[in-house]
Design a binder for these strands. Structure first.
Lengths: 151, 151
DNA sequence: TAAGATTGAGGTTTCAATCTTC
DNA sequence: GAAGATTGAAACCTCAATCTTA
């Protein structure tokens, strides 16, 4: 019957599974963002940017690469970096090899802010993420999610 | 040493684990959104709303409940529903029991759009989500993420 | 007074067009 | 012409204040 078929479509376990992923992610991001905003006075995306820079070779990232890593468009990253530059957290330097690309680095304040933010973030992760899972569950989760991450 | 400590903080496995969750989620949402936009001409959040309504008792949801489910503020939901009403996908009806609350239901077009969108969405899920995991991995993932979802 | 929803103001992101450099 | 980054316009969301009903 059509009605039964429609019901099945709506409650399809694949749809539900994806929904649970989205919900878990949204909830965690909300919690992390609130905490960072209150205790370090930066939005969550700032931490993501600072972290990507710190983890990059020579602690420098090209704008385009950063855009891909944090899932924003190039225009979005341009403005985001504008704000972070205004706040003296990052600084731009144009590449000497290819003057179209501009590299992003941490300022002194940016490095210090990253460290403060990471301590707050780790406490949040312990409270809302790690403590809810066993060691095995956490490693399974990472292993599985990693398969979903690559293009 | 300070330098070693900082390095460890940046590469802490808990931070990395959360980062992988965010990346996997972002990538999947991007893919799903692109596909829905191209093939059904609706944003991903429209599907989320249509689905929440269809899954609710009597196929009706209060605005506030919807806001909690899809992780938006009440103001955000008001405008989202405005747009969807404009597109004749949903309709508001004020509750007779409590005239402060307004319930959201599917229009005929909304129901048909939901069905079309779900078929596209399921194909995407198979291609980018389900096919990358074993049956066991998928069920593990759901079980683990479910623990991270509750408040 | 409190709860549910809406509105105005402000901030962030996307999309498309543009500018610069290769 | 193509790639990397930026800009203007528009879309969307949040926050706080407001309106309505309980």
């Amino acid at each position: 019957m059509a009605r039964v078929a429609r019901q099945t479509l709506i409650d399809d376990p694949r749809v539900t599974a994806f929904g649970i992923l989205v919900e878990a992610n949204a909830r965690l991001e909300r919690v992390m963002a609130k905490s960072l905003s209150e205790e370090v006075d930066i939005p969550l995306v700032y931490l993501e940017v600072l972290l990507r820079i710190a983890r990059s070779p020579d602690r420098q990232v090209a704008m385009g690469e950063l855009a891909a890593q944090i899932s924003l468009t190039s225009g979005g990253v341009t403005r985001l970096v504008d704000r972070m530059t205004q706040a003296d957290l990052v600084s731009r330097t144009t590449s000497s090899a290819d003057r179209r690309v501009s590299y992003l680095g941490l300022t002194t304040l940016g490095g210090a802010t990253l460290e403060r933010a990471l301590r707050v973030h780790l406490a949040d992760l312990d409270e809302h993420f790690v403590s809810r899972l066993s060691t095995q569950e956490l490693s399974s989760l990472v292993k599985i999610l990693d398969k979903l991450r690559a293009p």
